[in-house]
Design a binder for these strands. Structure first.
Lengths: 126, 126, 126, 126
DNA sequence: GTGGTCTAGACCACT
DNA sequence: GTGGTCTAGACCACA
């Protein structure tokens, strides 16, 4: 079972944090194909956010075909595996890195320092 | 002279991109102490953005004492050396990395992959 | 005997799919006047849906006088012939077509393409 | 300029009607690449619906990369042409027809009748 | 019980 | 001015 947590100070919108955590859960195998997610209501209560905020997150993932919902039944991890296509992932990786480097550079942090810091976190996942 | 470029698709607001690029220019020595920046008006035209957007970027950098504005003369790189305290920089580095890793993970990108990608960019700065 | 099948991905609610299939069965002569339908319970098991879902479908068909329920005995195809009035059918036909065309158009599918596709299915019924 | 219209009695949710009409506008060439859409506020007023309803529609189209938004500037038809890939469109066509035929059949309407009705509408678009 | 939609109204971020 | 996010609360449709 996934542990959802929101950080109100991060500046990242709640619904996006939920999306990221679900994607993260799937990427790390904590959430498996066909598994049921918490109901929108229960997750809203648990995270102390509005129903609509959770709904919005689930909805976006449904549009992306990552989740499937059956009205009256619940919301589930999609049966299609997310392969996000190798190309799309490469693009994501590149764009993420570019922005990362730019922001860091603006603070006088070199890529090498980033690498050093990141290495501390390697192996964090399975 | 610095080459400013904006990317509308990155999701990063224009004013922030301008700030980052100026900081980056200073960090890499392309912009030097006392050097004059383009006028708000000319930069706005060049980047095809609203005047207010450039103004906002310059103003924020002024607050950070990175820029100095002289009424009727122009905007200049601050005469004081920017020395972000070591502690502040460490914190920034850590927080940047954490968010970076989380977002990447949500897309199934491991820290190791990030390191590999980043290594391609090493050496760009000092 | 009719083969019921549900498609969870179609977006059409289960109870509606059941209704449609029974009407379809009658329209094509696979279900005849007075014939007994599966019990609510057995159909629910067969389709792996909730009892209430089947009940809802049967009930709606009862209201339309297409089915008749005899307490303790079972549910049967109505003894009265369904003769949807010609006018009602014309209206249904028109409204169905209109929505159909609109949705298709939104995906860049022209009425002509629809006709071509539909022609492949002609002859299935009388 | 596109004429938006909502039908409250159709059962189709407002936000979906908006989505369909925009897609329709693009498919028929009434909306062109890069063109600006009405602001969420103005469209909400015009259609007499809530701001969030319009926002929801725009947002979904943005996720599908059909629209692009720039905070503070407006919402625009995406610069990438929607090709929706031939495969995806074929699937849509097939599924749309299947549902169409099933619903019609349930009312005793044969595919041939549908074809006849649809032919009346051919050439409705450019 | 589940999710789906909508409203009214608020406050924030960006141009 | 633009869009983005969130809340509180309502009512509907489905299983």
């Amino acid at each position: 079972m996934l542990e959802f947590q929101l950080d109100a100070r991060s500046g990242v919108p709640f619904y996006r944090q939920i999306i990221d955590q679900i994607r993260f859960g799937i990427a790390t195998g904590q959430l498996k194909m066909g598994e049921q997610l918490p109901t929108v209501r229960s997750l809203a209560v648990q995270l102390k956010v509005n129903l609509n905020t959770v709904t919005k997150a689930y909805k976006e993932l449904e549009i992306q075909k990552i989740l499937e919902t059956q009205q009256g039944t619940g919301t589930f991890i999609g049966s299609e595996k997310i392969d996000v296509s190798v190309r799309e992932r490469r693009n994501k990786l590149r764009s993420i890195c570019e922005e990362f480097i730019n922001v860091a550079a603006a603070y006088g942090i070199s890529p090498k320092q980033l690498v050093d810091e990141l290495k501390k976190h390697e192996g964090g996942l399975s």
